[in-house]
């Protein structure tokens, strides 16, 4: 099986986000970038399919040289190869997806895995963009995947339950927590990853269709009220929710 995994880098989830001086991006000083948590799940799933039925796992990431860190983590987990689509231009989801589609369309991919969403942009659009660009089947937010030959049976999370989806390869699947428990890189994996040099390819994704014109912190909330510290607070709280907040 020829499997591709798209990975992106995101600020560590414990990061306190500060807008940068340009008012459009975040201040990257002291921000530690990590492999997007959902992409770890995608890498793990690719490795499991490969272990079960053979094949090759290639990770792909679009961005400047800083993405090499996340590529290295995926290689250390056990991916075979990596492609770095290099650009320092402003990209958005669609231009990144176009660049990836352009690079892998001639490589006969069977399966392309992505994370459910990047925890920075929270867009959750990339898998669908890729599927639409490549004219492949798409499954989003998968929590279970069963592959028999080229037939794929997936469970995907929806509001209040799950949908069981039947589709066939080639397909693009975005991976949700619950699908698997990602492995930690082993020392052996880390050593082996050092010999795997990412292939660098120039960006060919065209122009971005969206730009961020402003980025601000959400308005601060006024300090709340401590209603009390014992049972007498209960009727008082109900009064406040009813009369002041008017939410019940």
């Amino acid at each position: 099986m020829n499997i591709f995994v798209c990975v992106s880098q995101v600020p560590d989830t414990a990061t306190r986000i500060k807008p940068a001086a340009d008012g459009k991006s975040i201040d990257k000083t002291d921000v530690n970038f990590i492999l997007n948590p959902y992409d770890e799940i995608a890498v793990e799933q690719a490795l499991r399919f490969k272990e079960a039925q053979g094949g090759e796992v290639t990770v792909v990431s679009v961005g400047d040289d800083t993405v090499l860190n996340t590529i290295r983590k995926a290689l250390a987990m056990g991916a075979d190869k990596a492609i770095h689509i290099k650009t320092s231009d402003e990209i958005d989801g669609i231009s990144a997806a176009r660049a990836v589609a352009d690079v892998i369309k001639n490589s006969n991919p069977d399966l392309i895995l992505t994370g459910k969403e990047s925890v920075d942009t929270n867009s959750g659009q990339f898998a669908t963009f890729l599927g639409a660009l490549l004219d492949f089947n798409v499954v989003n937010v998968a929590v279970k995947l069963d592959l028999t030959g080229t037939q794929l049976r997936a469970e995907r999370e929806i509001e209040g339950g799950k949908e069981v989806v039947e589709t066939s390869l080639p397909a693009v699947v975005s991976c949700q927590k619950g699908l698997n428990e990602p492995r930690l890189p082993t020392l052996k994996g880390i050593m082996a990853s050092k010999t795997k040099k990412p292939e660098e390819i120039a960006f060919n994704g065209g122009s971005a269709y969206t730009t961020i014109s402003e980025l601000v912190k959400p308005p601060a909330k006024p300090a709340g009220k401590i209603v009390g510290a014992d049972l007498s607070a209960v009727p008082a709280l109900v009064d406040l929710l009813h009369n002041e907040a008017k939410v019940i």
Partner: peptide
Amino acid sequence: TRPVYTGKALSTVELKQ
């Protein structure tokens, strides 16, 4: 307007097409 960084910031997005 859309929240980014899981609600830690708000962005104004221009849709160019």
